Amino acid sequence: MQAHPSLLTLFGLAVIVIGVGARINIMLVIILSALTTCLCSGVSLVTAIATIGHYFTANRYMTILWSILPLVGLLEHAGLPRASRTFIGRLGVSTPGHVLWLYFLLRQISAALGLTSLGGQAQMVRPLLAPMVEEAGERMGRRAISEELSQKLKAEAAAVDNIAVFFGEDIFLAVASILLMETVLENAGLRISPWHLSFWAIPSALMAAIVTYVRMKRLDQAIGRRSEP
């Protein structure tokens, strides 16, 4: 049986899964996935490359964000993680869960106001949040944390940032996801105001906040049990 052309384009998704699983350079994986999707849809290689080039140049303003990465690297080299550790010590925040919960609230509120660029993995979690959480862990246990716990806290910091912005940004009326949902529903014959979509995103955001609070309490309890003699 011959596969439908629209199903063949799913090979692009398979390329992403295999590439990420094999830990290949993510930019290379994305480009190969885009080429695979184009080729499986029936277009020529030249047309596929031209299409990728067209959308790259049409959205070239997005590359401005890449200029942040060298700046973050310079700040890390200049001692930004050490400064963040000192800062969290002066605040008197006693546990990693408290640090992560406070950041979650700030991140979700800012995302709900449309300020999604205030946080992020590269510019906030790695140079600032992760060192703060590790410092709080050391203060809580009154000793240096293990490598396993360090990786655990870094993963929790990254997860908190993702969850907060994911459930918080839909509260903002003009976010792309709200406009996309309105368009999809309208094409399906359902007319729903963006105000309604934004309003009903609030219960999900509150539930995410409650679940995160419980998870952070359990994280502190687990760290407390590890630090017991």
Rank of each mutant, 00 (worst) to 15 (best):
His4Glu: 07
Pro5Lys: 01
Ser6Gln: 08
Leu10Lys: 00
Leu13Pro: 01
Ala14Ile: 04
Gly21Glu: 06
Gly21Ala: 14
Gly21Phe: 11
Gly21Ser: 13
Arg23Met: 03
Asn25Leu: 06
Ile26Thr: 05
Met27Asn: 14
Met27Leu: 14
Met27His: 07
Val29Asp: 07
Ser33Glu: 01
Ala34Pro: 00
Leu35Glu: 03
Thr36His: 08
Thr36Arg: 04
Cys38His: 15
Cys38Glu: 15
Leu39Ser: 05
Leu39Ile: 06
Cys40Val: 10
Ser41Pro: 01
Gly42Ile: 04
Gly42Asp: 10
Leu45Cys: 07
Leu45Met: 12
Val46Cys: 06
Thr47Ala: 15
Thr47Tyr: 05
Thr47Phe: 10
Ala48Leu: 07
Ala50Glu: 15
Thr51Phe: 11
Thr51Met: 11
Gly53His: 08
Gly53Glu: 04
His54Met: 07
Phe56Asn: 04
Phe56Glu: 00
Asn59Lys: 02
Arg60His: 06
Arg60Pro: 00
Arg60Asp: 01
Tyr61Ala: 09
Tyr61Lys: 05
Tyr61Trp: 10
Thr63His: 04
Ile64Lys: 02
Trp66Gly: 11
Ser67Thr: 03
Leu69Lys: 04
Leu69Tyr: 08
Leu69Pro: 01
Val72Tyr: 08
Gly73Thr: 05
Gly73Asp: 09
Gly73Glu: 12
Gly73Ser: 11
Leu75Trp: 14
Leu75Asn: 02
Glu76Gly: 03
His77Ala: 14
Ala78Tyr: 10
Ala78Cys: 01
Gly79Trp: 12
Gly79His: 09
Gly79Asp: 06
Arg82Ala: 15
Ala83Gln: 03
Arg85Met: 13
Ile88Trp: 06
Pro96Gly: 02
Gly97Asp: 02
Gly97Ser: 05
Leu100Thr: 10
Trp101Ser: 13
Leu106Val: 02
Gln108Glu: 15
Gln108Ala: 11
Ala112Ser: 10
Gly114Asn: 05
Gly114Lys: 08
Leu115Ile: 04
Thr116Gln: 09
Ser117Glu: 12
Gln121Cys: 03
Val125Asp: 05
Arg126Val: 12
Arg126Lys: 15
Pro127Ser: 07
Leu128Lys: 01
Leu128Pro: 03
Leu129Phe: 12
Leu129His: 04
Ala130Trp: 12
Pro131Met: 09
Val133Glu: 08
Arg139Lys: 12
Met140Gln: 15
Glu147Ile: 14
Glu148Thr: 15
Ser150Ala: 15
Ser150Pro: 13
Lys154Pro: 00
Lys154Glu: 13
Ala155Gly: 11
Ala155Leu: 11
Ala157Lys: 06
Ala158Gln: 06
Ala158Leu: 12
Ala159His: 04
Ala159Arg: 06
Asp161Gly: 00
Val165Gln: 06
Phe166Pro: 00
Gly168His: 01
Asp170Cys: 03
Ile171Val: 10
Ile171Asn: 04
Ala174Tyr: 05
Val175Met: 09
Met181Tyr: 10
Thr183Val: 11
Val184Asn: 13
Glu186Ala: 14
Asn187Thr: 06
Gly189Thr: 10
Gly189Ser: 12
Leu190Gln: 15
Arg191Ser: 12
Pro194Asp: 11
Trp195Gly: 13
Phe199His: 05
Ser204Leu: 09
Ser204Met: 08
Met207Phe: 11
Met207Glu: 02
Met207Trp: 04
Ala208Glu: 04
Ala208His: 00
Ile210Lys: 09
Thr212Ile: 02
Arg215Gly: 07
Lys217Glu: 01
Gln221Gly: 07
Gln221Arg: 13
Glu228Asn: 04
Pro229Met: 04
